[in-house]
């Protein structure tokens, strides 16, 4: 059951991701990306990371994707016109991606420890929001506040960048 779900969600995620790369229209690509994020959230849930799954849906599938679509609308982007495919670029990109996959498969295949299945939790009813909260505010309080400053800086940066008389 669990394995089947894993494969279903994995397949959805990967297929949507491939869609992102291959759809010609930006809007289709963005919708495909939403699907990929939702699939990923489901994968997080199969890993008992409910909080991260929810955040994934809220932040990515919600906020980030709205932003993407908004920009697509704002720039009035249409589907790319067909340009001659550059063989060298495709070959180079394919080589890098293939090389990465080769390294990854070799690493994963060579480590028997990775073949373990999920160990049983001490208590199947995980209260992981509380746990993440504890970890966040106890162990990572300072980084948490720093990240708040980062968001503020990003906000200010965006405002500055968006001003029309930017020279």
């Amino acid at each position: 059951m669990s394995l089947a779900l894993f494969w279903i969600f994995a397949a959805i995620t990967l297929a949507s991701a491939v869609g992102v790369v291959f759809f010609r229209s930006p809007v289709s690509a963005a919708m495909s990306l939403v699907m990929a994020f939702v699939g990923l959230a489901a994968l997080f849930v199969t890993l008992d990371a409910f909080f991260i799954g929810v955040v994934q849906v809220l932040v990515y599938a919600g906020a980030v994707m709205v932003l993407f679509l908004f920009i697509i609308m704002l720039l009035d982007l249409r589907a790319d016109e067909r340009r001659p495919v550059k063989l060298a670029a495709w070959a180079g990109g394919g080589a890098v991606v293939g090389g990465f996959m080769a390294v990854l498969v070799q690493v994963v295949g060579s480590l028997p420890a990775l073949q373990q299945t999920k160990p049983a939790l001490a208590n199947p009813a995980v209260n992981d929001v509380a746990m993440v909260g504890f970890a966040l505010f106890r162990n990572f309080n300072l980084p948490f506040q720093v990240i708040g400053v980062l968001l503020l800086v990003a906000t200010i940066g965006v405002v500055v960048l968006s001003r029309r008389e930017l020279k």
């Binding site: 994963v108 990775l114 073949q115 999920k118």
Partner: peptide, 9 residues
């Protein structure tokens, strides 16, 4: 059950 290797792949 899915293994860690599955997830990593």
């Amino acid at each position: 059950m899915a293994t860690l290797a599955n997830y990593l792949i």
